[in-house]
Computed example of a mutant assay.
Amino acid sequence: MFNASLGTTVKVTTVIIVGLFLLIGVALLLLFVLSLSEENFDRKSIMMPIVAIGLFGLLYWVFTERIIGYEVLNEGVKIIKGNDVQLIKKDLILEVKSIDYKDLRFSVRTFGIGGVFGFSGSFTNKKFGDMTWNFTSKDNLVMIVTQKQKFVVSPDNRTLFITKVSEFI
């Protein structure tokens, strides 16, 4: 298995966003508990724990979508996530190549997660068009081009990964 270590940008973004969400969620829960002790309970206060639970749920979902690593198997390339696995079938792979992060600058996120526990989802830019990002570090980027899609991944050992995937092209 090829690990997907977190890069500096992802680590910093994750710490800031998770810390902020936890701080806001805990503050909302504490404010709700304090509002329960008041004589004139405002029914609108019930929204505080609902919003807090929503924030915690969102954090949980992002955590379960994090990229753990990649496996090169006889069937193709497997992207291993927290609660999910995505297989890129080897019959569909046309090309595998190393790319630089500067090629991904000015990409637009159409749906996905941009920096918390990694970059994953659908993105597009002028150079590559539509892409599916599944990477955790901007340093080891590899693009897997298939007949229908382009995938961007970041295995720790980029050279060996490209060699292994190139064997079945």
Rank of each mutant, 00 (worst) to 15 (best):
D139F: 15
D100F: 09
D91G: 12
N83G: 08
G129N: 06
N83P: 12
Q147L: 15
R105D: 03
R109Q: 08
L92K: 15
F106W: 10
T146S: 09
S107V: 13
T132W: 00
T124P: 04
K150I: 09
Q147P: 10
V116W: 01
G112D: 02
K78L: 15
K138W: 02
R105G: 11
L94T: 04
V96D: 04
Q86C: 08
V108E: 08
K97A: 05
K126Q: 14
D100K: 10
F106N: 15
S107F: 13
G121K: 00
K78Y: 07
G129E: 13
I80L: 09
F151L: 03
V96L: 06
V116A: 08
V142A: 05
K97L: 13
I113W: 00
G115V: 08
D103A: 08
T110Q: 00
V77K: 01
D100Y: 12
L141N: 01
Y101F: 15
V145F: 02
N140W: 04
K150E: 07
F106L: 14
V77Q: 09
V77Y: 02
K81F: 09
L87M: 07
K126I: 14
V142M: 02
F151N: 02
F128G: 10
V142Q: 01
K127I: 11
S98R: 12
D100A: 12
S137H: 14
F128K: 08
Q149T: 10
L92V: 15
K102R: 10
L104G: 03
S98G: 11
Q86P: 06
D130Y: 01
I93P: 04
N83W: 09
N140Y: 04
F117Q: 11
T124G: 07
D103V: 13
I144M: 02
V108L: 14
F117C: 13
T146Y: 01
T136L: 07
M131R: 01
F128H: 11
T132H: 11
S122A: 14
G112C: 02
K78H: 08
F151Q: 04
N83L: 11
